[in-house]
């Protein structure tokens, strides 16, 4: 046993340990070649750096924001951007910069938790549907039913039922994006189930659950990671739309969507309220999409040439 493990390990090329300048040392034969491809893509690197800044902004919001985002100062209403109010102030005299900084928290929280939620639910449903033909029809018809609605409509309907709260937005959007993941995992499961290694695993008496985990799920990982990145982007966008419509997070919590919506009636006098929050939202979603594209190109050998 120990011998086979060493031999299997010998063929692998170790990942780079000493920073990016060793990137060229990862050869195409390495299982980590995709990391090199990914980090050689300038759009991906810029996006990763930008998202890191947004993440720090969200984590350190109380330190970065000059004032409490809900602090109302009637004396400072609709101040244009200046050295005191970097992004200006809104119609209640609240500091727009502080609100944008705190808004990053909701967007990232929703984006990441919805991705995890949809991946867990979708993977389970997809694995079961793909592995057990008897469960397939029922599960996939339910997924069809959920997919027959445009995502924002399904999210709105669920929010109408649950009422406005951050955790309800997360539940609603996880349900909305589950069919997408389930369909993907079902597809890869159906494909892998036919492979001889699954047959041999079954022949040596491995349990279904272990086969699904070790041979089927592990082989679905790369498309799943790519799709997961896009789910983060969609979830951030849909959360912002829900908040914009007033059907998402409760109004007292600043989110990018609700800041843009609050600024719309004041567009004539105070463009800065909507524009800064919207720009951050746009840049975050764009960066996430670019990373998704980069991951797809790096992980899928077929798309590399393009």
């Amino acid at each position: 046993m120990a011998l086979t493990e060493t031999m299997a390990g010998a063929g692998r090329v170790a990942p780079p340990r000493r920073g990016l300048w060793r990137l060229a040392a990862i050869t195409p034969a390495s299982p980590y070649y995709w990391v090199r491809l990914l980090l050689q893509n300038p759009a991906v690197v810029v996006s990763l750096v930008f998202l890191l800044v947004i993440l720090l902004m969200a984590l350190l919001a109380p330190v970065i924001a000059p004032v409490d985002p809900t602090f109302v100062d009637p004396g400072d209403r609709l101040e244009p951007p200046s050295s005191t109010f970097w992004f200006g102030s809104d119609d209640l005299g609240r500091d727009v910069f502080s609100r944008v900084v705190y808004g990053a928290r909701i967007s990232l929280l929703v984006g990441i938790t919805v991705m995890v939620g949809a991946m867990v639910l979708g993977s389970l449903i997809g694995l079961v549907a793909g592995y057990y033909p008897r469960a397939d029809t029922l599960l996939m018809r339910i997924m069809d039913g959920l997919e027959a609605f445009p995502s924002i409509l399904l999210a709105l309907t669920i929010m109408a039922t649950l009422g406005p709260a951050v955790e309800n937005v997360i539940v609603a959007l996880s349900v909305v994006y589950t069919p997408n993941i389930a369909r993907l995992v079902r597809g890869t499961t159906l494909m892998n189930r036919q492979q001889t290694y699954v047959e041999s695993a079954r022949a040596i008496g491995m349990r279904d659950f272990a086969i699904m985990r070790r041979y089927i799920f592990a082989n679905s990982l790369s498309p799943l990671i790519v799709q997961g990145t896009f789910v983060v982007a969609f979830a951030i966008l849909t959360e912002a739309s829900l908040s914009f419509l007033g059907a998402g997070v409760p109004p007292e919590i600043p989110t990018w969507g609700s800041i843009v919506s609050g600024g719309q009636p004041r567009l004539q006098q105070a463009w800065w309220i909507s524009v800064f929050a919207g720009a951050f939202l746009f840049a975050t979603v764009l960066a996430t999409n670019l990373i998704g594209d980069g991951l797809r190109d790096a992980l899928d050998p077929r798309s590399r040439k393009r």
Binding site: A233, L237, A240, S241, F244, G257, V260, S261, G263, Q264, L267, W271, S274, V275, G278, L281, F282, V285, L286, T288, N289, L290, D293
Partner: peptide, 17 residues
């Protein structure tokens, strides 16, 4: 890709502006 990533309500507001 900007068309995909820009929130439609934000693009609408920029056009209004």
């Amino acid at each position: 890709i900007s068309g995909v990533a820009i929130p439609s309500f934000f693009f609408g507001i920029l056009l209004i502006l």
